[in-house]
Design a protein around this nucleic acid. Structure first.
Length: 484
RNA sequence: GCCCCCAUCGUCUAGUGGCCCAGGACGCCGCCCUUUCAAGGCGGUAACGGGGAUUCGAACUCCCCUGGGGGCACCA
């Protein structure tokens, strides 16, 4: 039995976006898969809030809320780096005392200016080692001038840094390309590298699974760990990134990227998990694509993670969401939207009508939002009932639409009040018209839109009175629009 | 500019030297079903970036090029 400890360590700088959740998911799937194998696997949640200026409490709550909604649960934490500043500062002091790090008086602008003048032309820009070898007298002089300082880590001057990535193999970089970097800001707060290295040590993390955008930072963290006296190093695995359709980094300008946004647009957590798991990983052709979270955890293997970044395709997510909506138990599906529908319609809400609507809507919608929209025509007050322009245009274009509406109205007025009794197919045929050609007009008149629930059901659900009101209103409006 | 990672249909991917003139899924197109639209069923379109090398034989191995992405902060 192996001991596995992974961590998901988001920075609370906004709502969780799909890339970040993907990282959380892969860590979680790995831990749960190993636990299923009998290993002692722990998933730790850690909030990397070292940058006070970018941290907001609501983001931290939001991270937990979103993970909870998705069903990604954690065994330890959330730990917060902001509560461990003294620990980091102490470690930095120790590194300085041991000569592994040094006090640096250069400001950001100083460094930038020196880079601009070509001091390091032809090389990776970065710190030039200006304060590396200041003696105590020189440092004292700087302080006397009132200059503030940071603590900078001294990287090796030669040789290369190499580590084995579980999904990419050997990853190596020459140290000349990695300059001395800041580990403690002038205000005493730690920089990511330090806090991250120390937390991984203190929390005994065995596997670091994160996005490929962090692959270059690994060498610095590893150097820091060794300087901190840690002999053991965790296993690293760098995940492929999720890109926007234009292959650039996914960002707000590409539309929805925050998971909460997808949530409010009617996506199910099951579908989001399923979709994200299949971005950058595949269990092989035989497993199929619609997989529950448990099934995913059972099949997950880091070794099968793909290497190339993947483009986010909302079309496929939507399809997958529809698949999940149809797989869900109807009562369960109803329960997920009932609070919202109740809130929206107050005492106009009717449980029996709602249940029937969910049952027939389940088969024909891809998102919860679509499902809710389909049933608004059932609950909306007649005063608020409206027909959108596109739908009206559709109605008007129907052949002999006036006659159709008249015949339908007459039928609805007297027919037996069951869905089958309402069946309008015969009525249309009696006019010598094809139901498939003209029924759209009835949909528009009754549901206010060209896309919705089967209209015989809708008529039955809203009742004879209201159905007649809507049909006559449509007929009246038609008379005004198309004076005969 | 320097460094790192990557490279199969439009997109997500299967494929680890012969089973592949490359399979699945989404999308798209067509047909069927049909109370509009959806959903569903059936069918179709579409890819191994280029060039060398190794080999009897390369999508699969190696090299170069090209292309894409990422990194180079007192962000993480």
């Amino acid at each position: 039995m192996a001991t596995i400890r992974v961590r998901y360590s988001p920075a609370p700088s906004g709502e969780l976006h799909v890339g970040s959740v993907s990282t959380a998911l892969f860590n979680w799937l790995f831990a749960r898969h190993r636990a299923g194998l009998g290993d002692d696997a722990t998933f730790v949640l850690r909030i990397e809030d070292t940058d006070r200026s970018r941290t907001r409490e609501e983001w931290i709550d939001g991270i937990q809320e979103t993970l909870g909604w998705l069903g990604i649960d954690w065994d330890e934490g959330p730990f917060r780096q902001s509560e461990r500043f003294e620990r980091y500062a102490e470690a930095a002091r120790r590194l300085v005392a041991e000569g592994r790090a040094y006090e640096c008086f250069c400001t950001e602008d100083d460094v930038k200016a020196r880079n601009a003048t070509g001091t390091v032309a032809g090389r990776t820009p970065g710190y030039d080692g200006h304060c590396r070898d200041l003696d105590e007298a020189a440092r004292e002089a700087q302080r006397a001038e009132g200059r503030t300082s940071v603590v900078r880590f001294r990287t090796p001057d030669e040789g290369a840094s190499t580590f084995v990535d579980l999904i990419r193999g050997d990853v190596s970089v020459e140290w000349v390309n990695i300059h001395d970097f800041v580990i403690l800001r002038s205000d005493g707060s730690p920089i990511f590298f330090l806090a991250n290295a120390l937390d991984d040590i203190d929390q005994a993390i065995t596997h670091v699974i994160r996005g490929e955008d962090l692959i270059d930072t690994t060498h610095r963290v590893l150097a820091l760990r060794r300087a901190l006296g840690e002999a053991e190093q965790p296993v690293y695995a760098h995940l492929p990134l999720i890109l926007a359709a234009d292959r650039s980094k996914l960002s707000k300008r590409h539309g929805a990227v925050a998971v909460e946004e997808f949530r409010s647009r009617g996506y199910l957590p099951e579908a989001i998990i399923n979709y994200l798991a299949l971005m950058g990983w595949s269990p092989g052709d035989d497993a199929g694509e619609i997989l529950s979270t448990d099934e995913l955890a059972g099949l997950f293997e880091l070794e099968k993670v793909t290497h190339a970044s993947a483009v986010f395709d909302e079309k496929k997510l939507e399809w997958m969401n529809g698949e999940w909506m149809r797989r869900l138990d109807t009562a369960e599906l109803g329960a997920r939207i009932e609070p919202e529908v109740r809130a929206r319609f107050g005492d106009r809400f009717n449980a029996a009508v709602f249940a029937h609507a969910v049952a027939i809507g389940q088969e024909r919608s891809s998102t919860l939002v679509q499902l809710v929209e389909q049933m608004t025509c059932l609950f909306v007050a007649e005063d608020d009932f409206s027909i959108d322009d596109d739908a009206w245009a559709r109605l008007v274009s129907v052949e002999r639409v006036g006659e159709v509406l008249d015949a339908v109205t007459a039928h609805v007025d007297r027919c037996e009040w069951t869905v089958e009794g309402i069946n309008l197919v015969g009525v249309i045929k009696d006019l010598g018209l094809k139901p498939g050609k003209v029924m759209a007009a009835v949909y528009v008149a009754i549901e206010g839109r060209a896309q919705g629930l089967p209209v015989f059901d809708a008529i039955w659900l809203i009742g004879r009175e209201r159905a007649l009101v809507r049909l006559r209103a449509a007929r009246d409006r038609l008379g005004r629009d198309l004076p005969v």
